[in-house]
Design a protein around this nucleic acid. Sequence first.
DNA 1: ATTGCTGATGGAAGGACTTCCACGCACTGA
DNA 2: TCAGTGCGTGGAAGTCCTTCCATCAGCAAT
Lengths: 331, 331
Amino acid sequence: MSATIYDVAREAGVSMATVSRVLNETAVVKDETKKRVLDAIAKLSYRPNAVARGLASKRTKTIGVIVPDVSAAFMAELVRGIEDVARMYHYHIILCNSDGLLAREVDLIGTMWEKQVDGIIFMSPALLTEHVNTFEEAQIPIVLCRTDDPEGRIPSVNIDNSGASIDAVRYLHKKGRNKIAFLGSIHHEGTLTSERRRGYVAEMENRKLTPIFIDTAREEYQDALLAVRTHVTMEPIDAILAANDEMAIAAIHAILDEKKSVPKDIAVVGFDNTKLSMMARPELTTIAQPMYDYGAVAMRFMTKLLLDEPISTFRVVLPHQILEHASSADV
Amino acid sequence: MSATIYDVAREAGVSMATVSRVLNETAVVKDETKKRVLDAIAKLSYRPNAVARGLASKRTKTIGVIVPDVSAAFMAELVRGIEDVARMYHYHIILCNSDGLLAREVDLIGTMWEKQVDGIIFMSPALLTEHVNTFEEAQIPIVLCRTDDPEGRIPSVNIDNSGASIDAVRYLHKKGRNKIAFLGSIHHEGTLTSERRRGYVAEMENRKLTPIFIDTAREEYQDALLAVRTHVTMEPIDAILAANDEMAIAAIHAILDEKKSVPKDIAVVGFDNTKLSMMARPELTTIAQPMYDYGAVAMRFMTKLLLDEPISTFRVVLPHQILEHASSADV
DNA sequence: ATTGCTGATGGAAGGACTTCCACGCACTGA
DNA sequence: TCAGTGCGTGGAAGTCCTTCCATCAGCAAT
């Protein structure tokens, strides 16, 4: 079939140990010998078998990536960030979707271990004790991405979601908005949305404003569309802070459907700065998180862990920023 | 460290061969023995090492997935389809982005080979001879996905892009539109867009209509927005068939920006039925391709290849369908 | 009682690499 | 001249499985 390291050794007249050394640059090999080996490799168009390599070295150069759903709004960009950095460091990624189901997540971590991945980048709606336990059993380097560990046990990469909401409320209030509603679904604690909601509530109270909630079952366009439509006719509000862009756009459309104006009657601010925000009319003011960077930084973090590079902090916090567009512009 | 098959064998008082048989159900094992083995596995919380397994069996249960860019409009859904089916059949996927660069694609196929993947699902803007050659060298089962091999050498899963355009032109013409423009970028042959353009031209000529082209550099929102804005003021048209949804939405916005009406003045039809189509105002008429199914079917196809199941055709053609919405409704 | 099967299991040889240990050679310093 | 020092290299063990071949007990058929 295809050439093995042994064939290369014979062709070059050296031992397989030497070929391995050339391949991995793991020791000095005389230039002349090295050349012979490289020639033999080229001649036989030899490519090392990564599986055998993995078995012998106990390092597979692959990283497991567990996400709730790649096809969700901006997960793909994040995954792209991971993969790009992975490639730079000669890693590959095994991608799995968990749908945020604990059982599946636990199972996946097990499978990742079977596959002998060198590390796992993990995303989940909320981190539970079960997760942490599984991580500990698995004994694999883990980096949480867009998933907070409130107790800071696991290395993580996040933005300050609560702080971002605070900024948003401040921003809207400065624009003279007082009846600011929060559009999101109710989840258990530890969720991204719950953090965002927390910041919202804190800053509203801080400013002696009454929090208003527009709750949806799921965090989706259709649900949000209906919820906002209904709410707008019932209670007077002049601004909406949505838990994500998709819902924010639903809010815009719902408001327009009810013959009100954005931003004149109601300003809308989204979350995440997905492509969607640019594709709405009026364009959406949104809180930008660097989605690509999320993945890129998490993967870079992973390589640091793997290569024993010094790490300054276990909880990386990425910057966020309000990007102002027409949906909340001054009237 | 962690238990090996040998430990399990000792614990259960059998040979490792028997453990392997229990694990793989590759031969009959007496019920009582099997129970002892399973108990031992549970007791040691043993999980087989997939790498060692891969080396010994020459099957890794992993599939390489090469896409131009996961973060592109609907690639993520497609990848999700692949992964879901892969999981059903106990496969995993290694995901890589090629950016559609030939050199990277060739390199990736090589790396996939190193990784000893059982098969490759391959997506590319256009299939070239170099690809086919590399496939042949690699000797790995390949399934093309959303990538046509005009010569039908490689198994593939596609829709009839040219036919879809024909349908779209027919549809618009029946609605009384005569000045139908095609919005897309000019690529070399073999591209999806080129197929779509081909069908458009064919049906326009068939109906004695003059083809009108709005060309963009890249197939993106911004490029399309500018191109359409400019074009609309110069040449009278009453319909636009866009090469994808993103550009179609750009077209809608450009038309509105120029104070014209959609669909009254100009009807717009998109391609791909991404989530975006629902999120536009007016909602976008689009040619639906089953994006999730694209991936799911391709992966299912792959498993058939791998499991030697009978295959009816090497070129799977998925159905498409015009989904009518407000952007092209009767006025 | 002997032969011939079959069902259940053990033994051992790979599979393609990495890596540790040892060794030869040329050269250095006393 | 001889021990000491490295560099460059070979040999072989080890990694954890799968799988082929052999074995063996038990039972039906002759």
